[in-house]
Design a protein around this nucleic acid. Structure first.
Lengths: 94, 94
DNA sequence: AAAGTATTTAGACATTTGTCTAAATATCTA
DNA sequence: TAGATATTTAGACAAATGTCTAAATACTTT
């Protein structure tokens, strides 16, 4: 989970996630939304990919990125568990 | 939300959060769980406090820390919304 | 009041992170 | 096959981050 939390720690990367929520986009399309260089965006995409937050497929000379929302499941669970006073220190009752 | 995401980006801070989930603890008690110095733990606690993840009250010479789980609500919402394919690009229908 | 305990503040330092430009790779098109 | 387009890789660099030790602050106890 560390890569995931790290990935979400940067505002630019969260914006990328929000963009991809609306629709899949190529690296170039994504970069157009930001004022930082394409290599920087490429780097952010790489980190998101390492964290398994995005998937990419190469289509000709383009690379299309999409969100992999499944990785958030565990994280949401982690956070909801924090609020679960009932099961302090106990295993969840299946 | 940036301070919150940043705060969660560090493994030590997440461990602190997990400790506080079980029970409120003083700074010293928390520090005893780690092999890093007390000033470092103090610094982590400060960041968690800035992110509003923990609350602290001074009791004599001790300072007791507790979790403020309410801050996670917005974050959970953010993540759940990412998975919500239905409302792509639309405002949530109240 | 002095000494001990709990915690933070200050300042230094190495590592990590986010950014950039230049160059490399891969694909498409004329 | 050249030239244009899309994207990444490489390497440099400044800023942010996590850690440390030493010192300061605050409270308690003798």
């Amino acid at each position: 989970m560390n890569l995931l939390f790290k990935a979400l720690g940067d505002p630019t990367r969260r914006q990328i996630i929000e963009l991809l929520r609306k629709k899949d986009m190529t690296a170039g399309e994504i970069a157009d939304y930001f004022s930082i260089s394409k290599p920087s965006i490429s780097h952010h995409l790489d980190l998101l990919k390492q964290a398994n937050v995005v998937l990419s497929i190469k289509e000709g000379q383009f690379i299309t990125y999409s969100l992999n929302t499944t990785v958030f499941d565990e994280m949401v669970k982690w956070m909801l568990d924090l609020t679960d006073k009932q099961s302090k220190k106990t295993k969840p009752r299946k």
